[in-house]
């Protein structure tokens, strides 16, 4: 079976740390930085468990600020 792997790139400065992408992710890839903040003081999201990403773009669909770019690749 073809293996689908994905990757997300987050615009950290645009992120407001609302946590909606973390909740929407079906494979628990994303998390919010617990200590680091961006220039505006938000705990931004990052791909904590990036191997699990399937590139479904659910996170990007619910992101209110359009911070997420999603890549998907199918290995044959």
């Amino acid at each position: 079976m073809a293996k689908v792997s994905g990757a997300v790139v987050i615009n950290e400065e645009r992120c407001k740390g609302c946590n909606l992408c973390v909740v929407a992710c079906p494979t628990d890839v994303l998390a919010l930085k617990s200590k680091e903040v961006n220039d505006r003081g938000y705990h931004f999201a990052y791909p904590a468990n990036e191997e699990a990403c399937i590139g479904c773009a659910s996170c990007a669909a619910v992101c209110p600020d359009g911070c997420i770019r999603v890549y998907r690749m199918v290995e044959k």
Binding site: L20, R40, A61, P64, D65, V70, Y71
Partner: peptide, 24 residues
């Protein structure tokens, strides 16, 4: 491999909406 990106028409200005606002 790009499957999703912010639309070009939504510009680079930071939106003033609160985190998690449906407006965004």
């Amino acid at each position: 491999n790009l499957v999703y990106e912010k639309p070009r028409l939504l510009n680079e200005n930071h939106m003033h909406y609160c985190p998690g606002c449906s407006h965004g």
